[in-house]
Amino acid sequence: MEVRTIKVFTTVDNINLHTQVVDMSMTYGQQFGPTYLDGADVTKIKPHNSHEGKTFYVLPNDDTLRVEAFEYYHTTDPSFLGRYMSALNHTKKWKYPQVNGLTSIKWADNNCYLATALLTLQQIELKFNPPALQDAYYRARAGEAANFCALILAYCNKTVGELGDVRETMSYLFQHANLDSCKRVLNVVCKTCGQQQTTLKGVEAVMYMGTLSYEQFKKGVQIPCTCGKQATKYLVQQESPFVMMSAPPAQYELKHGTFTCASEYTGNYQCGHYKHITSKETLYCIDGALLTKSSEYKGPITDVFYKENSYTTTIK
């Protein structure tokens, strides 16, 4: 009895394709271990004539594949690729409408935090270190965002349907971005203890939790000093293409032309909904596939993004 075979390709990165001759009487799992086709788990399936010449994702289970996976995804987590594939199996079914010149995501599976993050990423200057993220990001900007969303979920250790947080998501993504040249110098002034300067680099240099107003941050924000008295913390120097200011959701007025974009969060910790506000020729609110415009805006804002380049204080 002759062994019926077909020729397929296996890959971990969709760049390096490895030619395989597979036995049609055995499952993919018996031949390769966990195997995925377009995100779908085909591990328990036997090869079919229609699979001839198709590319299958496999887990990096030998040295060659491990090197290829690390170079593309910059992670050695053995569960990463499987999590990416199972997320992709959902995100490829989502709709990605162009809204006001940006790629958004039609609401499904509690994905409003991903839509808000995706919209924000198209408006701030950011370059990702893992080629996987950078490639998928370019495709997302062009309207094909399924891979990018699935990668975000995998890097953030999230599953489809789980509630997510924009600030946490951005923080994970910033860790995989090139923020080497970003720098922030802060000064804390206390009447009792004097003053202390701190220099922050990388992710810490672009994120701040405690106030939404970048102007206020430049002037000074009140913080408790270690001595128990009130101290003032203010920005001395900022070198970065953008800054992200966050605070627990509270009524906040966004003035046209003073910011790049913002995240609105309605609801409580267990259950809520994100919308995205962007400042173009007027203010726009993007909620999944829905767009509304207004000249002014007041609502429960939790993150505001500002364009920056270089700032030095005039406070002496």
Rank of each mutant, 00 (worst) to 15 (best):
V188F: 08
K298C: 13
D109M: 05
I152K: 04
Q216D: 12
K92C: 11
S279T: 07
A145R: 02
Q196C: 10
E2H: 08
G228F: 00
Y208R: 06
Q123L: 04
A136C: 03
K280T: 09
T116C: 15
I124N: 01
C156D: 00
A250N: 11
N111W: 07
A247K: 13
D41S: 11
T19C: 11
Q230F: 14
I6D: 07
R184E: 02
Y73W: 02
N14T: 15
T103N: 05
Q195M: 15
S295R: 10
D23M: 11
V243Y: 02
T116V: 14
L163K: 15
P60T: 07
C182F: 08
V185Y: 02
E2M: 08
A40G: 13
E296A: 13
D62Y: 05
G194P: 05
V42Q: 09
N14Q: 11
G257I: 03
P60M: 08
K229W: 05
Q222E: 12
F305L: 01
V67N: 15
V189G: 06
Y252L: 07
V203F: 09
C149Y: 01
V42G: 02
K233W: 07
D63T: 13
S50G: 11
S295G: 11
L254R: 04
I277L: 03
P300M: 10
Y284R: 05
N129R: 14
E281V: 02
L151T: 01
S295K: 12
K316D: 15
D38K: 09
G299A: 09
D13S: 07
V21W: 14
N100R: 13
E144M: 10
K7N: 14
A136M: 07
S294A: 14
Y265R: 00
L65I: 06
F70Y: 03
K54L: 13
E144T: 07
Y311S: 07
Y155G: 00
H48F: 13
E125P: 12
T312V: 11
L17D: 10
K293I: 10
K127Y: 08
P47S: 05
F242W: 13
E162C: 03
L153T: 02
L179Q: 02
T159G: 12
K158C: 02
Q20S: 13
T312G: 08
L151F: 05
H48D: 15
T27N: 14
M24C: 11
T282H: 11
N268Y: 15
Y214D: 02
L118A: 02
V3Q: 12
P248E: 06
R141C: 14
K316V: 15
T226Y: 09
S86N: 14
L37K: 11
C225F: 00
F70H: 09
P241H: 05
I45N: 14
Y208S: 08
C193A: 03
N268D: 12
A145Y: 03
I124G: 02
P97V: 14
T302V: 15
C271G: 12
E125T: 06
N49V: 11
K46A: 11
D63I: 04
T199G: 04
M170E: 05
P34N: 14
W94H: 01
R4M: 12
V206F: 01
A145L: 01
A132N: 07
F128C: 08
Q270L: 11
E2R: 12
T19S: 13
Y265G: 06
K316P: 15
Y73Q: 06
L88Y: 13
E68I: 10
N178Y: 02
V236R: 02
L133A: 08
G164D: 00
N61G: 08
T312A: 09
Q237W: 06
A289N: 13
M26C: 14
D287L: 05
N89H: 11
I15V: 15
G39M: 09
G202A: 06
L65C: 10
L102N: 01
Q122T: 02
T116G: 03
A117C: 10
E168H: 15
K201L: 11
T198D: 07
K106W: 11
H74T: 14
T11L: 01
K255E: 13
Y269T: 15
K106S: 14
Q98G: 08
D180R: 09
G194Q: 03
G29M: 12
Q270A: 10
C190N: 01
M245P: 04
F259T: 01
E52G: 11
D13F: 05
M170A: 03
L290K: 14
L179Y: 02
F217Q: 04
K316Y: 15
C193D: 06
A146N: 03
A117L: 00
T159E: 15
L283I: 15
N16G: 08
T192Q: 11
S171K: 15
M85H: 15
S25K: 07
K191W: 04
R66V: 12
E281M: 03
A247R: 13
S104V: 06
G220Q: 05
K201A: 09
I105E: 00
K183G: 07
M85E: 13
K233Y: 07
R83G: 03
Q196L: 09
T266D: 09
A115N: 10
E308F: 04
L121A: 08
Q238G: 04
T312Y: 10
K127W: 04
S294W: 12
D109V: 01
Q20W: 07
C112D: 05
T55H: 11
N49Q: 00
M244L: 07
Y172H: 12
N309V: 11
G220D: 02
G299R: 06
G143F: 03
Y96F: 14
C261W: 00
H74M: 10
A250M: 14
A117D: 03
L88D: 04
D303S: 01
R83I: 10
C112T: 05
T43W: 04
P130K: 02
T282D: 11
Y234Q: 09
K92E: 07
K158D: 00
T159R: 11
R4Y: 14
S295Q: 15
T11V: 07
K93A: 06
G288Q: 00
E296W: 09
K201Y: 15
D13T: 09
F242V: 08
T192C: 09
S79V: 05
Y306C: 01
P241T: 06
T43D: 09
N61C: 15
M244P: 02
G210H: 01
P241D: 09
Y214E: 14
Q31G: 09
Q123P: 02
E2Y: 10
M26P: 08
E239N: 07
T120G: 01
N268T: 13
I45L: 12
P78F: 06
A145N: 01
G228K: 01
T27F: 14
K255D: 07
T159H: 15
Y138Q: 15
E253C: 01
V189M: 08
T75E: 08
E162G: 05
P131K: 06
A136N: 08
Q31P: 06
K54H: 12
G228Y: 04
L179E: 05
G194T: 03
K93W: 07
I286H: 00
E296S: 14
L173M: 15
D23S: 14
K218S: 03
L102D: 02
Y252W: 14
S86C: 13
R4I: 10
Y214W: 02
A146T: 01
R66W: 09
V8N: 05
G272W: 00
N178K: 11
P97G: 02
C193S: 04
M209L: 12
A231D: 05
K316G: 15
E68K: 07
E281Q: 04
T211C: 12
A247C: 15
V203Q: 04
P248D: 15
V243P: 01
K280Q: 14
N178G: 06
K229D: 15
P249R: 05
G33Y: 07
V304I: 08
E308Y: 03
I152W: 00
I277K: 00
N49A: 13
E168G: 14
A250Y: 09
L291G: 11
Y265K: 01
Y138M: 14
A231V: 02
L290I: 13
G39F: 09
A108K: 08
T232H: 04
A205I: 04
M85L: 12
M207G: 01
G272R: 06
I15M: 05
F148Q: 04
T116N: 09
